[in-house]
Amino acid sequence: MSHPTIERPARLVIGTIVLAIAASTAPCHANPATERYVPIGKSPGMSGKYTHTGRIMKVDERSHTLTIRTDSRDRYEVHLLPQSQIWLDRSKARRSSREGGFEDCRKGRRVEIKYVDGGRDTMAVDWIKIESR
């Protein structure tokens, strides 16, 4: 497994996280439609087990890659695919969640990320919720 763009000290942490997540297989029959309306960190049975929550540190528009720092201060890169679902969680502003795009991935924004089943070793994103107002 290689993460060429990640700083050396972070590699071990990232590798551990990846292996830990890959080792615990997330169920694959979840429905994304209602998931969109679940605020960041509240996904039942998913948040904290199969997702990462943190802030966007860096956005690479060319490769659609985000560098994330988790709440536990680990740092890693995630890759958005064309089919990755991007939702803007506006619940704190008491507004409806809506579909977003890569342009909504901005530095400093709080996010929750679920990885593609079977694709966690590449940190490919299944869905990402972005806090927005």
């Binding site: 997330a26 169920p27 694959c28 029959h29 979840a30 429905n31 994304p32 439609a33 209602t34 998931e35 309306y37 679940v38 605020p39 509240k42 996904s43 039942p44 049975g45 998913m46 948040s47 087990k49 199969y50 506006r90 619940s91 008491r94 507004r95 409806s96 969640s97």
Partner: peptide, 29 residues
């Protein structure tokens, strides 16, 4: 079910789909 797709998580999806006051479906509102 949303979340982990389990029977436990099913109720959360049902609330979002069938219980809202408005179709905005904002949690907490």
């Amino acid at each position: 079910a949303p979340g982990d797709g389990s029977l436990r998580a099913f109720a959360a999806g049902a609330v979002i789909q069938h219980f809202p006051k408005r179709l905005d479906r904002v949690a907490g509102v």
